[in-house]
């Protein structure tokens, strides 16, 4: 049986609609109008034990609403939903003991106290036996390298340090299912990389099923073998992350630094990003990149050359555009 199973899952919110201005406000006092907004529509999803899934989509696409239904925070309007064999919005204690959720923008740590104080509360909340608690604290503290932060007031920690401790708090009770909502938001590139390493380790070492929502496509690309693209509340792609990028990341960027002044002109069909007598940057179709690079290396005095995947943000824009979507651009940060 799947760990998560949804069928025709739908969530509709009733939203107050007001005409602009004072007249509109007065009218709304006596004749209030509401509109129905469907945040998630007829959503089918199956997730198996141990999977690491990325949930991507632009702002307002419905991914957070979906996660909130899966965690029981909000009730679905219609459709079937089963998570770990439970109906989430029944909010059964046994269900809540088996998953954890980390929200990048909502801290679970006591700001004025130390991380150990929060860990103690979580031990009590989840009824973690003393032995397991100690072992998990030791394991995760070692894995995340945060031993010197345990008895420090949380408010004095950096965002990256706080996020590591948020993850430790969430993992103390060995959840089988972990929801991560923007866990790398606001972190610098190096900390993001570290965080990805930790998550990969948690997924493989503990076989924890992870559902990751992120605007940083690099998170999804490097961590999630499977991704689900959602927009307008509808699922528009569910499959291999690599396949998705293979489909849409169809170009490569070549950066060349010449050893001497040249009159180099990028090949026909390439999109030139930068050109000077000593340097050229251009994008061209993936299947031509190798051949063209080899030719340039033969014909010119090359000081340095690099071939990179097309910028991930551009790829995401293409994914949404190809699906006829209105991307709000932040998805490809």
């Amino acid at each position: 049986m799947s760990l998560i199973h949804t069928k025709d899952l739908t969530k509709t919110f009733r939203i107050f609609e007001k005409e602009p201005g004072l007249t509109g406000s007065v009218k709304s006092l006596f004749n209030r109008k509401f509109i129905d907004k469907t945040a998630v529509a007829n959503f089918d999803l199956c997730v198996e034990q141990g999977e690491f899934i990325g949930l991507i989509g632009p702002n307002g696409s419905g991914k957070t609403t979906l996660v909130k239904m899966l965690t029981g925070i909000i009730a679905p309007s219609s459709g079937e939903i089963s998570v770990l064999g439970f109906y989430p919005n029944k909010l059964e204690t046994l269900f809540k003991k088996q998953y954890a959720v980390v929200m990048g923008q909502k801290s679970q740590l006591f700001f004025e106290l130390t991380p150990m104080d929060t860990f103690r509360l979580f031990k009590e909340l989840y009824g973690i036996p003393e032995k397991t608690y100690k072992r998990n604290v030791d394991d995760f503290v070692e894995l995340f390298g945060v031993s010197e932060l345990l008895n420090v007031q949380v408010r004095t920690l950096s965002l990256g340090e706080r996020m590591k401790l948020e993850l430790i708090a969430a993992l103390l009770h060995n959840p089988g299912l972990l929801f991560l909502d923007e866990p790398t938001i606001g972190l610098d590139a190096a900390t993001q990389r570290n965080m990805r390493g930790f998550l990969r380790e948690v997924n493989s070492r503990k076989s924890t099923t992870i559902i990751l929502t992120s605007h940083y496509m690099e998170d999804v690309r490097t961590l999630c073998p499977r991704c689900v693209v959602i927009n307008g509340g509808k699922k528009i792609y569910d499959g291999g992350t690599d396949s998705l990028f293979d489909m849409y990341q169809s170009r490569k960027k070549i950066t060349i630094t010449f050893g001497r002044e040249t009159d180099f002109i990028p090949p026909e069909g390439a999109e030139t990003l930068e050109r000077s007598p000593y340097r050229a940057v251009f994008i061209l179709p993936k299947d031509q990149a190798g051949k063209i690079a080899a030719q340039i290396t033969r014909d010119y005095d090359i000081a340095d050359i690099s071939i990179e995947e097309e910028e991930i943000g551009k790829t995401v824009e293409k994914i949404y555009a190809a699906k006829g979507l209105n991307n709000e651009t932040e998805a490809g940060a």
Binding site: I73, K97, V101, L125
Partner: peptide
Amino acid sequence: GGGLDLYITKPV
């Protein structure tokens, strides 16, 4: 503010 999320998702 949605802060109740953190209470609802805990087993108490």
